[in-house]
Simulated assay, not measured.
Amino acid sequence: MKLGRVLVVGGYGAVGATVAGSLGDWFPGRVVVAGRDEAKALRLGGVRADVTDPDGFRRTLDGLGDVAAVVMCVEPPDAGIAHACLERGVHLVDIGATRRLLDGVGELDGLAAASGASAVLSVGVAPGLTNLLARRADEAVGGAERIDLTVLLGAGERHGADAVRWTVEHLAESAAVRPLRVELPGYGPRTAYAFPFSDQYTLPRTLGTAQVATRLCLDSRALTSTLFALRRAARRPAVRQALTAVLRRVHAGGDGFAVRADARRGDRRAAYALTGRAQSRVTGLVAAYVTRELLAGSLPAGVRHIEQLPALARLPEELAEHGVGLQRLDGPPEG
């Protein structure tokens, strides 16, 4: 077990509070909450840390002195914070979901390997659990030619402002992939629409699958239809701003979620699904479990996505005690 403290950046937010709480139970006295809001961080016995200021972040790390790992629960503008961690041999767990940022951290693999640090990317529900399900389905068919990932989120869950803003901004991206009718455990048949989660860009590299597509829907059918009907209009900044404000106020659903991975190879099919409640909480739990494994010293030095690490393959089963259910499904999506 690697000694030292764990710095949870954004540790007072919806995801970070779960990370900090879980790690605090496992590693009493070793968790430090950090964030740009100094007052909130100090109330939790933490420190100020600004992810837009890599030099300032370096000073924070050096001031603490014995940081073993950093858990990023907020998205920085670039890979500068990751560089500050890895050059010091500090492990990194990143819940980021933006392709550009994950690719930037991936380019630091040589730096991480040289310093003996591990960085784990694609940590959360989507990406994260979707990646792990995709790997299972891929292995079940002997190497998939195509993987379809479906994510259903609860419209009633109160997500943080950054999460809502991120969703609306990515909603505006063009969608070349057609909608898909999918059976989701506990929710029945749903129409899901193309959405640029980073897993669809990562998995072709990590699994060698030629075609990967991720789609999104909400537990509210009406809100799903309305949201994606506004996709073209959301390219305008004013519309995105208004839509973000509305989604932060409207909670027309529950807090459940479901993810499904379908793999195809010729006439072979395999599908797995996970269901649970409170996606932000489960994202935090995934990050906490990954951090615990990382501190145990069982992960290799370098930058890896979660599906590339065999030690994390059974994470879906480990989450069962937190109400996350894993199922093997029969039959492909309706198409």
Score class of each variant (00 low, 15 high):
residue 302 G to T: 05
residue 266 G to W: 13
residue 163 A to H: 07
residue 288 A to C: 04
residue 263 A to S: 10
residue 176 A to G: 09
residue 197 F to Y: 06
residue 304 R to I: 05
residue 227 L to H: 03
residue 305 H to G: 08
residue 231 R to C: 03
residue 224 T to F: 06
residue 218 L to P: 10
residue 232 R to A: 15
residue 232 R to F: 13
residue 196 P to H: 02
residue 258 A to M: 08
residue 225 S to K: 13
residue 245 A to R: 11
residue 258 A to D: 03
residue 184 L to Y: 04
residue 249 R to A: 13
residue 203 L to E: 01
residue 252 A to R: 11
residue 163 A to D: 14
residue 237 P to G: 06
residue 238 A to V: 14
residue 278 A to M: 13
residue 268 R to H: 04
residue 192 A to Y: 04
residue 277 R to Q: 15
residue 244 T to K: 03
residue 237 P to V: 01
residue 249 R to Q: 15
residue 299 L to H: 02
residue 212 V to M: 06
residue 195 F to R: 01
residue 252 A to P: 12
residue 229 A to Q: 13
residue 191 T to W: 08
residue 243 L to A: 04
residue 200 Q to K: 00
residue 231 R to H: 05
residue 223 L to G: 11
residue 295 L to C: 04
residue 287 A to C: 00
residue 193 Y to C: 06
residue 249 R to M: 11
residue 235 R to L: 04
residue 239 V to I: 13
residue 303 V to K: 04
residue 227 L to C: 10
residue 209 T to F: 09
residue 210 A to P: 09
residue 193 Y to A: 08
residue 166 W to A: 09
residue 178 R to W: 15
residue 171 L to M: 14
residue 202 T to M: 10
residue 171 L to T: 15
residue 272 Y to A: 02
residue 296 A to P: 12
residue 296 A to L: 07
residue 262 D to A: 13
residue 224 T to K: 02
residue 290 V to H: 00
residue 293 E to Q: 13
residue 213 A to G: 12
residue 165 R to W: 11
residue 277 R to C: 09
residue 239 V to M: 09
residue 162 D to K: 03
residue 237 P to S: 10
residue 197 F to L: 06
residue 206 T to A: 01
residue 234 A to E: 08
residue 228 F to G: 10
residue 175 A to T: 12
residue 166 W to V: 05
residue 218 L to F: 07
residue 226 T to I: 12
residue 289 Y to F: 07
residue 274 L to T: 07
residue 282 V to C: 06
residue 306 I to N: 02
residue 214 T to Q: 01
residue 286 V to I: 03
residue 266 G to H: 07
residue 172 A to Q: 04
residue 226 T to E: 11
residue 303 V to S: 05
residue 200 Q to L: 06
residue 275 T to V: 06
residue 169 E to L: 11
residue 255 D to C: 00
residue 231 R to S: 10
residue 212 V to T: 09
residue 181 R to V: 15
residue 178 R to K: 14
residue 298 S to A: 14
residue 301 A to P: 00
residue 200 Q to F: 06
residue 164 V to D: 09
residue 177 V to E: 14
residue 299 L to C: 12
residue 225 S to W: 15
residue 298 S to T: 15
residue 292 R to T: 02
residue 188 G to M: 05
residue 293 E to F: 00
residue 258 A to S: 10
residue 306 I to E: 01
residue 220 S to R: 04
residue 258 A to W: 02
residue 287 A to P: 01
residue 187 Y to I: 05
residue 202 T to Y: 06
residue 217 C to S: 11
residue 242 A to R: 02
residue 229 A to D: 13
residue 190 R to Q: 03
residue 265 R to L: 05
residue 185 P to H: 08
residue 235 R to W: 07
residue 183 E to I: 12
residue 194 A to Y: 13
residue 241 Q to P: 05
residue 204 P to G: 10
residue 176 A to E: 14
residue 287 A to Y: 00
residue 268 R to P: 01
residue 204 P to H: 05
residue 264 R to W: 12
residue 267 D to A: 11
residue 225 S to D: 14
residue 207 L to A: 02
